[in-house]
Nucleic acid binder design. Structure first.
Lengths: 215, 215
DNA sequence: CACAGTTTCAAACACATGTTTGAAAAGTAC
DNA sequence: GTACTTTTCAAACATGTGTTTGAAACTGTG
């Protein structure tokens, strides 16, 4: 078994390098040779430890997925402990605080996982098809239920839509997927600083959540 | 020159097939053989007409880019003709109407271009680095200026942020990048119907735009 | 030390990639 | 119908891909 310190170090180095490169260039544009070279390990090490490139991607993802989902639940728990029926603002705060905390703790891979998530929405990887709903189904339901208590005027369906828009906005914002970077030569928004993104984004999404029903 | 009817038909078939496949699988995961097979042409035809795979991508993109930017400007012009200082709602309507019209006119490639745009935000292609700002710089400035007149309480910087959030939300929503599809086993939102997306999204983003400043 | 299991490594594997070639076919103009 | 250009095609090109191999190096244990 891969229990020795050296072995753990090797597979961890691979995970770190792969995480960074997958986020930067995407899955298909990142080759095994690039990953192993960046990690300073032999080409065969990936297949030795993770079976395949797909297995590596899954491992990269799952290393962060569980901690993040637990962070999201913990922050919602805390919000509901302070206030049994948290407002939209407080719910969004739970969300953004989870993302920010994820980015601040180096052990959690910084902002990389949020970016990887945002990439995965656009380019879903088959290896995640079944593990993601298992892990994030409860998180989604909990947040949607909380939003329902905060905005009782919205139907179940419209709550799902609002959560969809909310998470799209949050993940894309934190991932730094800047539309303006593509559209304008010198965009003046700095979408790279998570704290700034969170402050700018908050009034926007909170007002959006509280908006009257589409009818 | 490629001016005969047959030649136009061939390159157009390639563009159509490539557009669909690039949207579906992304640039790197779409091979030349897949494209030419889907288009029913010989492998060498792509290099003959477009020089390279990168050249093909650029051609695919640019075929739609100009019509779409003109649609966006035309709808904003119309809104400002009806009302010299359009509200946030009317501005968003100009935006969504452009996207919906793009999707409804078959000659414009349906919803495909919006999806391609959304993909490109996450995975920018070098071939577009210089042509996009040239084409969409004015569009962005016009919309941001209109938003500034509608919401005079926001600073120039915050207006750019709002436009960033607005366009992120719109493009991702129309592209059908459904967070819930990844997070939940049976999502109840149908993010594929553009008219429905537009109706659900409108109150959310309009309220977001009109929100008080982040301060 | 010697033995077992674990990990590393250079090399090769079979296959897929984008691109080029040169000749055949189709089309155009005088 | 002949000369010329444009377009198509099968084949090959060089290179990159993920993966496998089998031996060497290392590890911890009795």
């Amino acid at each position: 078994m891969a229990e020795s310190a050296k072995a753990l170090e090797t597979s961890a180095r691979i995970l770190d390098a792969a995480e960074k490169l997958f986020v930067e260039h995407g899955f298909h544009a990142t080759s095994m040779r690039l990953i192993t070279q960046a990690a300073g390990v032999n080409i065969a090490a990936v297949n030795y430890y993770f079976g395949s490139k797909d297995g590596l991607f899954k491992a990269v993802f799952e290393r962060r997925a569980e901690p993040f989902s637990q962070l999201m639940l913990a922050h919602l728990d805390e919000a509901e402990r302070v206030n049994p029926v948290p407002s939209a603002l407080q719910i969004v705060h739970a969300f953004t605080n989870a993302a920010l905390q994820m980015g601040n703790e180096p052990d959690y891979g910084g902002q990389l996982f949020v970016k990887l998530l945002a990439r995965t929405f656009v380019e879903p990887h088959p290896a995640l098809k079944e593990s993601m709903p298992r892990r994030y189904g409860e998180v989604s339901r909990r947040y949607i239920a909380a939003l329902g208590r905060a905005m009782p005027h919205l139907s179940e369906l419209e709550l799902h839509w609002r959560f969809h828009f909310l998470s799209s906005a949050l993940f894309n914002a934190f991932a730094g997927n800047n539309v303006l970077r593509l559209f304008m030569a010198q965009p003046i928004v700095n979408a790279r600083d998570p704290e700034l993104v969170a402050r700018m984004l908050l009034p926007f999404v909170v007002a959006g959540l509280n908006a009257p029903s589409a009818g």
